[in-house]
Design a protein around this nucleic acid. Structure first.
Length: 455
RNA sequence: GGCGACGUGGCCAAGCGGUUAAGGCGGAGGUCUGCAAAACCUCUAUUCGGCGGUUCGAAUCCGCCCGUCGCCUCCA
Protein backbone atom coordinates (compact mmCIF):
# COMPACT_ATOMS: atom_id res chain seq x y z
CA UNK A 1 0.00 0.00 0.00
CA UNK A 2 1.37 3.36 -0.99
CA UNK A 3 1.27 5.99 1.71
CA UNK A 4 1.57 9.68 0.93
CA UNK A 5 1.88 12.62 3.26
CA UNK A 6 -1.15 14.84 2.91
CA UNK A 7 -0.55 18.50 3.73
CA UNK A 8 -4.26 18.91 4.35
CA UNK A 9 -4.43 16.39 7.20
CA UNK A 10 -0.75 16.69 8.13
CA UNK A 11 -0.32 12.97 8.20
CA UNK A 12 0.61 10.04 6.02
CA UNK A 13 -2.40 8.33 4.50
CA UNK A 14 -3.02 5.21 2.47
CA UNK A 15 -3.35 6.22 -1.13
CA UNK A 16 -6.66 5.16 -2.63
CA UNK A 17 -7.73 6.91 -5.83
CA UNK A 18 -11.38 7.80 -6.37
CA UNK A 19 -11.65 6.02 -9.71
CA UNK A 20 -9.78 3.78 -12.13
CA UNK A 21 -7.42 6.53 -13.03
CA UNK A 22 -5.32 8.67 -10.72
CA UNK A 23 -6.26 12.28 -11.30
CA UNK A 24 -3.22 14.38 -10.64
CA UNK A 25 -2.83 18.11 -11.03
CA UNK A 26 0.52 19.85 -10.79
CA UNK A 27 0.75 23.60 -10.44
CA UNK A 28 2.94 24.53 -13.34
CA UNK A 29 5.14 27.49 -14.03
CA UNK A 30 4.44 31.07 -14.85
CA UNK A 31 6.31 31.55 -18.07
CA UNK A 32 8.22 34.79 -17.79
CA UNK A 33 11.79 33.53 -17.41
CA UNK A 34 14.02 30.47 -17.78
CA UNK A 35 13.42 27.61 -15.40
CA UNK A 36 15.68 27.43 -12.38
CA UNK A 37 16.73 24.46 -10.30
CA UNK A 38 13.79 24.95 -7.96
CA UNK A 39 11.50 24.16 -10.88
CA UNK A 40 13.76 21.21 -11.68
CA UNK A 41 13.34 19.95 -8.13
CA UNK A 42 9.57 20.11 -8.29
CA UNK A 43 9.38 18.66 -11.79
CA UNK A 44 11.65 15.76 -10.95
CA UNK A 45 9.82 14.89 -7.75
CA UNK A 46 6.40 14.78 -9.35
CA UNK A 47 7.86 12.98 -12.35
CA UNK A 48 9.07 10.31 -9.95
CA UNK A 49 5.64 10.22 -8.34
CA UNK A 50 3.90 9.50 -11.66
CA UNK A 51 6.54 6.97 -12.69
CA UNK A 52 6.20 5.17 -9.38
CA UNK A 53 2.40 5.15 -9.43
CA UNK A 54 2.54 3.61 -12.88
CA UNK A 55 5.16 1.12 -11.70
CA UNK A 56 2.64 0.09 -9.07
CA UNK A 57 0.03 -0.41 -11.78
CA UNK A 58 -1.98 2.76 -11.40
CA UNK A 59 -3.14 4.57 -14.49
CA UNK A 60 -2.27 8.22 -14.11
CA UNK A 61 -3.72 11.24 -15.81
CA UNK A 62 -1.41 14.14 -15.07
CA UNK A 63 -2.31 17.71 -15.84
CA UNK A 64 0.27 20.46 -15.54
CA UNK A 65 -0.63 23.97 -16.53
CA UNK A 66 1.21 26.93 -17.93
CA UNK A 67 0.25 30.26 -16.44
CA UNK A 68 0.60 32.49 -19.45
CA UNK A 69 -1.32 35.54 -18.22
CA UNK A 70 0.23 37.28 -15.25
CA UNK A 71 1.71 40.52 -13.95
CA UNK A 72 5.24 39.22 -14.22
CA UNK A 73 4.74 38.35 -17.86
CA UNK A 74 3.33 41.79 -18.57
CA UNK A 75 6.27 43.40 -16.79
CA UNK A 76 8.78 41.27 -18.62
CA UNK A 77 7.19 42.13 -21.96
CA UNK A 78 7.40 45.81 -21.13
CA UNK A 79 11.04 45.47 -20.06
CA UNK A 80 11.97 43.61 -23.25
CA UNK A 81 9.70 45.83 -25.33
CA UNK A 82 7.98 42.92 -27.05
CA UNK A 83 4.39 41.67 -27.11
CA UNK A 84 3.56 39.53 -24.08
CA UNK A 85 2.70 36.57 -26.30
CA UNK A 86 6.29 36.53 -27.41
CA UNK A 87 7.45 36.22 -23.81
CA UNK A 88 5.17 33.29 -23.07
CA UNK A 89 6.08 31.46 -26.27
CA UNK A 90 9.76 31.97 -25.58
CA UNK A 91 9.62 30.62 -22.04
CA UNK A 92 7.26 27.76 -22.74
CA UNK A 93 9.82 26.68 -25.30
CA UNK A 94 12.58 27.18 -22.73
CA UNK A 95 10.66 25.20 -20.13
CA UNK A 96 10.37 22.25 -22.47
CA UNK A 97 14.07 22.33 -23.24
CA UNK A 98 14.86 22.23 -19.54
CA UNK A 99 12.38 19.54 -18.67
CA UNK A 100 13.32 17.36 -21.62
CA UNK A 101 16.95 17.78 -20.68
CA UNK A 102 16.14 16.51 -17.21
CA UNK A 103 14.35 13.45 -18.60
CA UNK A 104 11.08 14.57 -17.03
CA UNK A 105 8.13 13.07 -18.85
CA UNK A 106 5.54 15.52 -20.02
CA UNK A 107 2.10 15.64 -18.47
CA UNK A 108 -0.83 14.15 -20.36
CA UNK A 109 -2.45 17.55 -20.62
CA UNK A 110 -0.64 20.88 -20.47
CA UNK A 111 -3.32 23.54 -20.56
CA UNK A 112 -2.69 27.24 -20.83
CA UNK A 113 -4.76 29.96 -19.22
CA UNK A 114 -5.21 31.69 -22.57
CA UNK A 115 -6.68 28.53 -24.08
CA UNK A 116 -9.14 27.76 -21.30
CA UNK A 117 -10.55 31.25 -20.89
CA UNK A 118 -14.20 30.25 -21.50
CA UNK A 119 -14.03 27.67 -18.69
CA UNK A 120 -12.36 30.17 -16.37
CA UNK A 121 -15.03 32.77 -17.01
CA UNK A 122 -17.79 30.18 -16.63
CA UNK A 123 -16.39 29.12 -13.27
CA UNK A 124 -16.30 32.70 -12.05
CA UNK A 125 -19.87 33.14 -13.21
CA UNK A 126 -20.83 30.04 -11.31
CA UNK A 127 -19.27 31.42 -8.13
CA UNK A 128 -21.06 34.74 -8.59
CA UNK A 129 -24.37 32.95 -9.22
CA UNK A 130 -23.88 30.85 -6.12
CA UNK A 131 -23.19 33.87 -3.95
CA UNK A 132 -19.57 33.01 -3.25
CA UNK A 133 -18.28 35.88 -5.31
CA UNK A 134 -19.37 39.40 -6.23
CA UNK A 135 -18.72 41.98 -8.90
CA UNK A 136 -17.27 45.32 -8.02
CA UNK A 137 -16.20 47.95 -10.54
CA UNK A 138 -15.59 45.44 -13.29
CA UNK A 139 -13.67 43.06 -11.08
CA UNK A 140 -14.91 39.95 -9.32
CA UNK A 141 -13.87 38.93 -5.83
CA UNK A 142 -14.23 35.74 -3.85
CA UNK A 143 -16.04 36.18 -0.56
CA UNK A 144 -13.63 34.50 1.84
CA UNK A 145 -15.77 34.79 4.95
CA UNK A 146 -18.53 32.77 3.35
CA UNK A 147 -16.34 29.69 3.58
CA UNK A 148 -16.26 28.66 7.25
CA UNK A 149 -13.32 26.30 6.80
CA UNK A 150 -11.21 28.80 4.91
CA UNK A 151 -7.62 28.38 6.10
CA UNK A 152 -7.79 24.64 6.64
CA UNK A 153 -4.78 23.90 4.45
CA UNK A 154 -2.43 26.57 5.70
CA UNK A 155 -3.65 26.71 9.27
CA UNK A 156 -4.07 30.42 8.90
CA UNK A 157 -6.70 32.49 10.59
CA UNK A 158 -8.09 35.30 8.47
CA UNK A 159 -8.00 37.98 11.14
CA UNK A 160 -4.50 37.18 12.29
CA UNK A 161 -3.26 37.26 8.74
CA UNK A 162 -4.82 40.61 8.08
CA UNK A 163 -3.35 41.99 11.25
CA UNK A 164 0.11 41.09 10.05
CA UNK A 165 -0.16 42.29 6.47
CA UNK A 166 -1.07 45.77 7.61
CA UNK A 167 -4.41 46.00 5.92
CA UNK A 168 -5.23 45.75 2.28
CA UNK A 169 -4.75 48.26 -0.47
CA UNK A 170 -7.09 46.95 -3.13
CA UNK A 171 -10.10 49.19 -2.91
CA UNK A 172 -13.63 48.16 -3.63
CA UNK A 173 -13.63 44.86 -1.86
CA UNK A 174 -16.20 43.95 0.74
CA UNK A 175 -13.50 42.54 2.93
CA UNK A 176 -9.73 42.96 2.77
CA UNK A 177 -9.30 39.17 2.84
CA UNK A 178 -11.25 38.66 -0.38
CA UNK A 179 -9.18 37.83 -3.42
CA UNK A 180 -9.65 38.64 -7.09
CA UNK A 181 -11.13 36.12 -9.47
CA UNK A 182 -11.35 38.60 -12.32
CA UNK A 183 -9.36 41.79 -12.66
CA UNK A 184 -10.94 44.67 -14.56
CA UNK A 185 -8.90 45.74 -17.56
CA UNK A 186 -6.13 48.30 -17.16
CA UNK A 187 -4.53 50.26 -19.99
CA UNK A 188 -1.97 48.32 -22.05
CA UNK A 189 -2.78 44.98 -20.46
CA UNK A 190 -4.05 41.84 -22.13
CA UNK A 191 -7.81 41.56 -21.86
CA UNK A 192 -10.67 39.21 -22.58
CA UNK A 193 -14.36 39.93 -22.75
CA UNK A 194 -16.52 38.58 -20.01
CA UNK A 195 -19.97 39.10 -18.50
CA UNK A 196 -18.23 41.27 -15.89
CA UNK A 197 -16.57 43.42 -18.50
CA UNK A 198 -13.15 43.23 -20.15
CA UNK A 199 -10.28 42.06 -18.01
CA UNK A 200 -8.20 39.03 -17.13
CA UNK A 201 -8.34 36.24 -14.57
CA UNK A 202 -6.89 36.57 -11.10
CA UNK A 203 -4.07 34.33 -10.06
CA UNK A 204 -5.83 31.36 -8.48
CA UNK A 205 -8.94 30.72 -10.50
CA UNK A 206 -7.13 29.27 -13.51
CA UNK A 207 -5.98 26.15 -11.67
CA UNK A 208 -9.46 25.35 -10.41
CA UNK A 209 -10.93 25.86 -13.86
CA UNK A 210 -8.30 23.76 -15.59
CA UNK A 211 -8.46 20.99 -13.00
CA UNK A 212 -12.26 20.91 -13.39
CA UNK A 213 -12.06 20.87 -17.16
CA UNK A 214 -9.33 18.31 -17.61
CA UNK A 215 -9.80 16.10 -14.55
CA UNK A 216 -13.13 16.78 -12.87
CA UNK A 217 -14.45 18.54 -9.82
CA UNK A 218 -12.76 16.19 -7.38
CA UNK A 219 -9.25 14.96 -7.93
CA UNK A 220 -6.83 12.58 -6.24
CA UNK A 221 -3.56 14.44 -5.92
CA UNK A 222 -2.70 18.11 -6.17
CA UNK A 223 0.99 18.96 -6.25
CA UNK A 224 3.16 22.00 -5.94
CA UNK A 225 5.85 23.71 -3.91
CA UNK A 226 5.48 24.44 -0.22
CA UNK A 227 5.42 28.12 -1.02
CA UNK A 228 2.11 27.68 -2.82
CA UNK A 229 0.20 26.52 0.25
CA UNK A 230 -0.78 30.07 1.04
CA UNK A 231 -2.44 31.81 -0.59
CA UNK A 232 -2.58 29.91 -3.86
CA UNK A 233 -3.72 26.45 -2.78
CA UNK A 234 -5.82 27.76 0.06
CA UNK A 235 -7.73 29.88 -2.43
CA UNK A 236 -7.98 27.09 -4.94
CA UNK A 237 -9.60 24.90 -2.32
CA UNK A 238 -12.02 27.66 -1.34
CA UNK A 239 -13.20 28.51 -4.83
CA UNK A 240 -13.27 24.91 -6.06
CA UNK A 241 -15.29 23.62 -3.15
CA UNK A 242 -17.64 26.58 -3.23
CA UNK A 243 -18.29 26.03 -6.91
CA UNK A 244 -18.72 22.26 -6.86
CA UNK A 245 -20.26 21.96 -3.43
CA UNK A 246 -18.00 18.95 -2.92
CA UNK A 247 -15.31 18.41 -0.33
CA UNK A 248 -12.45 17.80 -0.60
CA UNK A 249 -11.45 19.31 -3.92
CA UNK A 250 -8.34 17.12 -3.84
CA UNK A 251 -7.93 14.06 -1.63
CA UNK A 252 -4.20 14.54 -1.23
CA UNK A 253 -2.12 17.70 -1.27
CA UNK A 254 1.57 17.13 -1.84
CA UNK A 255 4.17 19.82 -1.40
CA UNK A 256 7.85 19.71 -2.16
CA UNK A 257 10.44 21.54 -0.07
CA UNK A 258 12.31 24.65 -1.14
CA UNK A 259 15.88 24.65 -2.35
CA UNK A 260 18.46 26.07 0.01
CA UNK A 261 21.38 27.93 -1.42
CA UNK A 262 24.78 26.82 -0.11
CA UNK A 263 25.42 30.06 1.76
CA UNK A 264 22.29 29.53 3.81
CA UNK A 265 19.98 31.79 1.87
CA UNK A 266 16.73 30.48 0.53
CA UNK A 267 16.07 30.27 -3.14
CA UNK A 268 14.16 33.27 -4.27
CA UNK A 269 13.63 34.79 -7.61
CA UNK A 270 13.63 38.22 -6.14
CA UNK A 271 17.19 37.71 -4.94
CA UNK A 272 18.25 37.03 -8.48
CA UNK A 273 20.31 34.03 -7.46
CA UNK A 274 18.33 31.44 -9.34
CA UNK A 275 20.42 28.71 -10.84
CA UNK A 276 19.39 28.23 -14.42
CA UNK A 277 18.50 24.67 -15.45
CA UNK A 278 19.97 24.89 -18.91
CA UNK A 279 23.23 26.23 -17.49
CA UNK A 280 23.29 23.40 -14.96
CA UNK A 281 22.75 20.84 -17.72
CA UNK A 282 25.82 22.14 -19.50
CA UNK A 283 27.88 21.39 -16.44
CA UNK A 284 26.19 18.27 -15.08
CA UNK A 285 24.30 15.29 -16.44
CA UNK A 286 20.57 15.04 -15.88
CA UNK A 287 21.24 11.87 -13.87
CA UNK A 288 23.52 13.66 -11.45
CA UNK A 289 21.05 16.50 -10.94
CA UNK A 290 18.30 13.96 -10.35
CA UNK A 291 20.41 11.94 -7.92
CA UNK A 292 21.38 15.05 -6.01
CA UNK A 293 17.69 15.86 -5.59
CA UNK A 294 16.44 12.36 -4.84
CA UNK A 295 19.08 11.73 -2.20
CA UNK A 296 17.04 14.03 0.00
CA UNK A 297 13.44 13.37 0.85
CA UNK A 298 11.05 15.49 -1.21
CA UNK A 299 9.60 17.35 1.77
CA UNK A 300 12.97 18.55 3.04
CA UNK A 301 14.84 21.54 1.69
CA UNK A 302 17.84 20.24 -0.25
CA UNK A 303 21.09 22.15 -0.28
CA UNK A 304 21.99 23.58 -3.65
CA UNK A 305 25.73 23.23 -3.88
CA UNK A 306 27.69 22.39 -7.02
CA UNK A 307 29.99 20.22 -4.94
CA UNK A 308 27.04 18.00 -4.10
CA UNK A 309 25.94 17.66 -7.70
CA UNK A 310 29.52 16.78 -8.58
CA UNK A 311 29.51 14.13 -5.85
CA UNK A 312 26.28 12.76 -7.31
CA UNK A 313 27.98 12.51 -10.69
CA UNK A 314 30.60 10.25 -9.13
CA UNK A 315 27.89 8.18 -7.46
CA UNK A 316 26.16 7.69 -10.79
CA UNK A 317 29.38 6.28 -12.20
CA UNK A 318 29.26 3.55 -9.55
CA UNK A 319 25.78 2.53 -10.63
CA UNK A 320 26.60 2.67 -14.32
CA UNK A 321 29.75 0.62 -13.98
CA UNK A 322 27.98 -2.02 -11.92
CA UNK A 323 25.29 -2.34 -14.59
CA UNK A 324 27.59 -2.15 -17.58
CA UNK A 325 30.39 -4.43 -16.41
CA UNK A 326 30.63 -7.62 -18.40
CA UNK A 327 28.50 -10.44 -17.14
CA UNK A 328 29.73 -13.97 -16.54
CA UNK A 329 27.22 -16.54 -17.67
CA UNK A 330 26.69 -19.13 -15.06
CA UNK A 331 24.03 -21.38 -13.59
CA UNK A 332 24.72 -19.73 -10.29
CA UNK A 333 22.94 -16.39 -10.52
CA UNK A 334 22.48 -13.63 -7.99
CA UNK A 335 19.05 -13.39 -6.42
CA UNK A 336 18.19 -9.70 -6.22
CA UNK A 337 14.57 -9.95 -5.15
CA UNK A 338 15.24 -8.71 -1.62
CA UNK A 339 16.50 -5.42 -3.04
CA UNK A 340 13.41 -4.93 -5.12
CA UNK A 341 11.34 -5.47 -2.00
CA UNK A 342 13.41 -2.88 -0.15
CA UNK A 343 12.96 -0.41 -2.99
CA UNK A 344 9.19 -0.83 -3.11
CA UNK A 345 8.87 -0.64 0.65
CA UNK A 346 10.84 2.60 0.72
CA UNK A 347 8.90 4.18 -2.14
CA UNK A 348 5.58 3.09 -0.68
CA UNK A 349 6.48 5.07 2.41
CA UNK A 350 5.76 8.56 1.09
CA UNK A 351 8.32 8.28 -1.70
CA UNK A 352 11.37 7.69 0.47
CA UNK A 353 13.81 8.02 -2.40
CA UNK A 354 16.94 8.20 -0.17
CA UNK A 355 16.17 4.74 1.14
CA UNK A 356 15.18 3.46 -2.27
CA UNK A 357 18.55 4.65 -3.56
CA UNK A 358 20.33 3.00 -0.64
CA UNK A 359 18.81 -0.31 -1.76
CA UNK A 360 20.09 0.29 -5.29
CA UNK A 361 23.60 1.15 -4.10
CA UNK A 362 23.69 -1.93 -1.90
CA UNK A 363 22.59 -4.05 -4.81
CA UNK A 364 25.35 -2.63 -7.00
CA UNK A 365 27.95 -3.57 -4.44
CA UNK A 366 26.45 -7.01 -4.12
CA UNK A 367 26.60 -7.42 -7.90
CA UNK A 368 30.23 -6.43 -8.14
CA UNK A 369 31.09 -8.88 -5.43
CA UNK A 370 29.00 -11.69 -6.92
CA UNK A 371 30.59 -11.11 -10.29
CA UNK A 372 34.08 -11.73 -8.96
CA UNK A 373 32.69 -14.86 -7.34
CA UNK A 374 31.71 -16.05 -10.79
CA UNK A 375 27.99 -15.54 -10.43
CA UNK A 376 25.63 -14.51 -13.20
CA UNK A 377 24.36 -11.02 -12.41
CA UNK A 378 22.45 -10.24 -15.59
CA UNK A 379 19.11 -10.49 -13.79
CA UNK A 380 20.29 -8.16 -11.06
CA UNK A 381 21.61 -5.68 -13.64
CA UNK A 382 18.22 -5.76 -15.32
CA UNK A 383 16.61 -4.98 -11.98
CA UNK A 384 18.90 -2.02 -11.44
CA UNK A 385 17.88 -0.68 -14.84
CA UNK A 386 14.24 -1.20 -13.93
CA UNK A 387 14.44 0.53 -10.57
CA UNK A 388 16.61 3.41 -11.71
CA UNK A 389 14.15 3.79 -14.57
CA UNK A 390 11.34 4.26 -12.07
CA UNK A 391 13.37 7.09 -10.59
CA UNK A 392 13.87 8.55 -14.06
CA UNK A 393 17.57 7.91 -14.49
CA UNK A 394 18.88 7.36 -18.00
CA UNK A 395 22.11 5.60 -16.99
CA UNK A 396 23.71 7.30 -19.95
CA UNK A 397 27.26 8.52 -19.61
CA UNK A 398 27.40 12.30 -19.24
CA UNK A 399 27.83 14.26 -22.45
CA UNK A 400 31.46 14.11 -23.35
CA UNK A 401 33.32 17.34 -23.39
CA UNK A 402 35.65 18.02 -26.25
CA UNK A 403 39.03 18.52 -24.68
CA UNK A 404 40.83 19.07 -27.97
CA UNK A 405 41.86 15.46 -28.46
CA UNK A 406 39.99 13.49 -31.08
CA UNK A 407 39.26 9.81 -30.68
CA UNK A 408 41.98 9.11 -33.22
CA UNK A 409 44.47 11.18 -31.23
CA UNK A 410 43.60 9.25 -28.13
CA UNK A 411 43.76 5.87 -29.77
CA UNK A 412 47.17 6.75 -31.18
CA UNK A 413 48.43 7.72 -27.74
CA UNK A 414 46.96 4.58 -26.20
CA UNK A 415 48.71 2.48 -28.85
CA UNK A 416 51.94 4.32 -28.18
CA UNK A 417 51.60 3.55 -24.49
CA UNK A 418 50.81 -0.07 -25.19
CA UNK A 419 54.08 -0.37 -27.06
CA UNK A 420 55.97 1.25 -24.22
CA UNK A 421 54.36 -1.11 -21.74
CA UNK A 422 55.21 -4.11 -23.87
CA UNK A 423 58.84 -2.95 -23.75
CA UNK A 424 58.47 -2.33 -20.05
CA UNK A 425 59.42 1.32 -20.58
CA UNK A 426 57.23 2.26 -17.64
CA UNK A 427 58.37 5.88 -17.53
CA UNK A 428 57.29 6.43 -21.14
CA UNK A 429 54.01 4.63 -20.56
CA UNK A 430 53.21 6.73 -17.52
CA UNK A 431 54.10 9.93 -19.37
CA UNK A 432 51.48 9.12 -21.97
CA UNK A 433 48.97 8.39 -19.25
CA UNK A 434 49.73 11.71 -17.58
CA UNK A 435 49.27 13.47 -20.89
CA UNK A 436 45.87 11.87 -21.38
CA UNK A 437 44.95 12.55 -17.81
CA UNK A 438 45.73 16.23 -18.26
CA UNK A 439 43.36 16.26 -21.24
CA UNK A 440 40.58 14.77 -19.14
CA UNK A 441 40.94 11.22 -20.43
CA UNK A 442 41.25 8.41 -17.95
CA UNK A 443 42.45 4.97 -18.94
CA UNK A 444 42.20 1.60 -17.41
CA UNK A 445 44.13 -1.59 -18.09
CA UNK A 446 42.43 -4.94 -17.94
CA UNK A 447 44.99 -7.52 -18.93
CA UNK A 448 46.16 -6.62 -22.44
CA UNK A 449 43.18 -4.46 -23.14
CA UNK A 450 43.26 -0.78 -22.38
CA UNK A 451 40.04 1.19 -22.34
CA UNK A 452 39.66 4.93 -22.02
CA UNK A 453 36.93 7.36 -21.21
CA UNK A 454 36.54 11.09 -21.05
CA UNK A 455 35.91 12.45 -17.59
C1' G B 1 2.93 38.99 16.03
C1' G B 2 0.49 34.36 13.57
C1' C B 3 1.30 29.46 10.89
C1' G B 4 5.13 25.88 10.08
C1' A B 5 9.89 23.18 9.22
C1' C B 6 14.61 21.76 10.77
C1' G B 7 19.28 20.87 13.89
C1' U B 8 22.25 13.04 13.04
C1' G B 9 29.97 11.34 11.47
C1' G B 10 34.65 15.95 7.53
C1' C B 11 30.27 17.10 3.88
C1' C B 12 25.24 15.53 2.03
C1' A B 13 21.42 12.51 4.06
C1' A B 14 17.85 8.22 5.91
C1' G B 15 15.97 6.56 10.46
C1' C B 16 10.58 8.99 14.00
C1' G B 17 9.82 4.03 20.82
C1' G B 18 13.41 -1.56 21.29
C1' U B 19 18.61 -5.94 16.72
C1' U B 20 25.59 -3.75 15.51
C1' A B 21 22.32 4.56 13.97
C1' A B 22 20.89 3.20 6.12
C1' G B 23 23.12 5.07 1.76
C1' G B 24 26.27 8.62 -1.08
C1' C B 25 30.67 11.83 -1.34
C1' G B 26 35.38 12.53 0.99
C1' G B 27 39.54 10.40 3.97
C1' A B 28 42.95 6.21 5.92
C1' G B 29 44.80 1.22 5.30
C1' G B 30 44.63 -3.34 2.37
C1' U B 31 43.61 -6.90 -2.07
C1' C B 32 44.25 -6.59 -7.40
C1' U B 33 47.86 -3.92 -10.84
C1' G B 34 54.61 -2.92 -13.66
C1' C B 35 52.51 1.54 -11.31
C1' A B 36 47.59 3.27 -11.69
C1' A B 37 42.18 3.48 -12.55
C1' A B 38 37.82 0.70 -11.52
C1' A B 39 36.08 -2.97 -8.23
C1' C B 40 36.22 -5.43 -3.57
C1' C B 41 37.59 -5.75 1.92
C1' U B 42 38.53 -3.09 6.67
C1' C B 43 38.33 1.43 9.32
C1' U B 44 36.22 6.62 9.59
C1' A B 45 28.98 8.93 15.03
C1' U B 46 29.14 4.32 22.25
C1' U B 47 26.26 8.76 19.60
C1' C B 48 21.94 11.92 17.27
C1' G B 49 22.02 21.07 19.21
C1' G B 50 21.68 21.75 24.99
C1' C B 51 19.14 20.75 29.68
C1' G B 52 15.29 18.37 32.15
C1' G B 53 11.00 14.84 32.01
C1' U B 54 7.83 10.38 30.48
C1' U B 55 9.18 5.06 29.78
C1' C B 56 11.68 -1.34 31.51
C1' G B 57 13.75 1.20 27.12
C1' A B 58 14.28 7.73 23.33
C1' A B 59 18.03 10.22 17.91
C1' U B 60 12.81 8.91 17.91
C1' C B 61 7.37 11.18 22.80
C1' C B 62 6.73 15.88 26.24
C1' G B 63 8.64 20.73 28.25
C1' C B 64 12.12 24.58 28.27
C1' C B 65 16.47 26.80 26.14
C1' C B 66 19.99 27.76 22.04
C1' G B 67 20.54 28.00 16.71
C1' U B 68 19.08 27.86 11.45
C1' C B 69 15.13 28.47 7.87
C1' G B 70 10.23 28.93 5.22
C1' C B 71 5.24 31.08 4.69
C1' C B 72 1.87 35.16 6.13
C1' U B 73 3.23 39.90 -0.70
C1' C B 74 4.85 37.36 -6.70
C1' C B 75 7.41 32.50 -6.36
C1' A B 76 8.10 25.17 -7.61
Amino acid sequence: MIQLYNSLTRSKEDFVPLGDEVKMYVCGVTVYDDSHLGHALSSIIFDVLTRYLEYRDFKVRKVQNFTDVDDKIINRAAADDVPWEEITERYIESFYESIDGLNVRRANVEPRVTEDMPEIIALIQRLVDGGSAYEMNGSVYYRVRNKPDYGKLSGQNIDEMLGASGGDVESGKEDPADFALWKAVKPDEPKWDSPFGPGRPGWHIECSAMAFKHLGEQIDIHCGGLDLIFPHHENEIAQSESASGRTPFSSVWMHNGMLRIANGQEMSKSLGNAFNVKAALEEFSSDSIRLWILQSHYRTNPLLDKELIGAAERSMRRIRSAVEAENVESDDSLDASAYKRRFVEAMDDDLNTPQALAAIFDLCRKMNRARTDGKDVSGAAELVRELTGVLGFTLEAPPQKNEGLSDDDINALVAQRKEARADKRWGDADAVRDQLDAAGISISDAGDETTWSRD
